[in-house]
Design a protein around this nucleic acid. Structure first.
Lengths: 238, 238
DNA sequence: ATTCCAGAAATTATCTATTATTCTGTCGCA
DNA sequence: TGCGACAGAATAATAGATAATTTCTGGAAT
């Protein structure tokens, strides 16, 4: 078992996604708390619907409730928790419709990003993306695969130079990852990534629209995949 | 002049956009503060680059600094302010590139929403949208026009039933509105909305793709419009 | 005048302690 | 079994304090 159960004072292996565990002393405690909670939520270490009690979390991180509350607001904005006044926050649930919704949004936005990135893609960048794809093939578990997958998408989309768009895509990717982990945790097998290679081939050939259409299908497939394989909780609707 | 200058204890006419001034006593002080600050930022009542000092704002709202900080986190997530640790938050600036970025994101997401909403559009809904369009034509100032414009988009997109998507579109709309106000404040003339009518006509005829393509162009036009007419500050990049 | 720097003032980020309000869950009673 | 009162928790917010950092300001030195 990779993940310890969440509790008052349990130490959990964090930062699966945000590998930049730099904890640069420049950022605030609130930021650190929100990052670590995000990791736990994404990994499934805290399950959907679970209540997050500010005092317990404050105690666990050796902080007061003020930065914890700020962290909550950030997680709320990312859609990872839902907050009801005077009732506290709980980990957001996600239904099939929401997963589909996120997939469609990702498809739309990633296509936009790719179109804008295309003119700036160099051979070096595409080679990097190819490395990421190979890393995904070699992945031994869902976490490693997800990390490689995210890297691939980031590499080919980042050159669009649209920070707000990239942030939005990243948040959606996070939501996808949650779903992925919840569905595939048990029976994992590395899927050699045909789509990634098709996208790279099209980009190398300068066929941007072809690449975009494969990308759109690819992202939406990720959204559908679990519809059959994943028995996750309908959980936590307001 | 509609807007008083922002200061320690100046009363400002708020809530241009969020007409639901319900202040339902159910929501928190932090929520109220974030809403009112958002309105001021959107309307241009606080200008880009301005520092927001937590204690001053707390004093003005008769609150302590804790809810103010939470409000800041929310505004940060919406992209209305930028926060630097230990330096405080300031109203986000926006460059032409950012405006274009927001417009393109809106176009992509609104098209997605429209495609999903189309099957659920009824005559009654389209009539409502037409009313909103007419309200826009009659608008005497930028605020009224923006309100009607937002209503139009909401009315035709809401039936998609994708809450996360709608929230994202709304935040982007907010960003657009800021830009709109900054550029058009001075010389305002109501533009009879040809595009809105074209969209409605296409929807009435069941031509969803035609409607979507007009919508995409329409939204992007909004993004371009100001490129010539608006001399706004390059302001506040980190 | 312009630049540079030290000290002062202001501001952020945080903590601790306290209060009001609102949930939640349990116990007794019909 | 179902229902209402009550006690215990938890949230939301206040107030006040403190350390660290940033920003401002008023000269020296160039």
């Amino acid at each position: 078992m990779w993940f310890a159960v969440f509790g008052r004072s349990t130490v959990t292996r964090d930062s699966i996604i945000y590998k930049t565990m730099t904890t640069a002393k420049s950022d605030t405690i609130a930021t650190r708390i929100s990052r670590r909670l995000a990791d736990r939520i994404i990994s499934g270490s805290i399950e959907a619907g679970a209540k997050l009690r500010q005092d317990h979390i404050a105690e666990e991180f050796g902080a007061s409730h003020v930065p914890v509350r700020e962290a909550f607001r950030r997680l709320e904005a990312q859609g990872l928790v839902v907050s009801e006044p005077r009732r506290g926050v709980r980990v957001a649930g996600f239904s099939v419709e929401e997963v589909r919704e996120v997939a469609e949004m990702r498809a739309a936005l990633e296509v936009l990003a790719l179109r804008n990135a295309a003119p700036h893609l160099t051979k070096a960048i595409l080679d990097q993306a190819e490395d990421a794809t190979r890393a995904g093939d070699r992945a031994g578990d869902a976490e490693a695969w997800e990390k490689a997958n995210r890297a691939f998408h980031r590499i080919i989309l980042a050159p669009c130079g649209m920070p707000r768009l990239l942030k939005a895509i990243d948040d959606l990717h996070t939501a996808s990852a949650r779903f992925l982990f919840s569905g595939w945790r048990a029976e994992w097998e590395a899927p050699t990534d045909r789509d990634h290679r098709a996208i790279l081939a099209a980009l190398r050939a300068g066929e941007v629209e072809a690449a975009a259409s494969v990308l759109a299908r690819h992202v939406q497939w990720t959204g559908h995949k679990g519809q059959k394989s994943s028995p996750f909780p309908a959980a936590a609707r307001r």
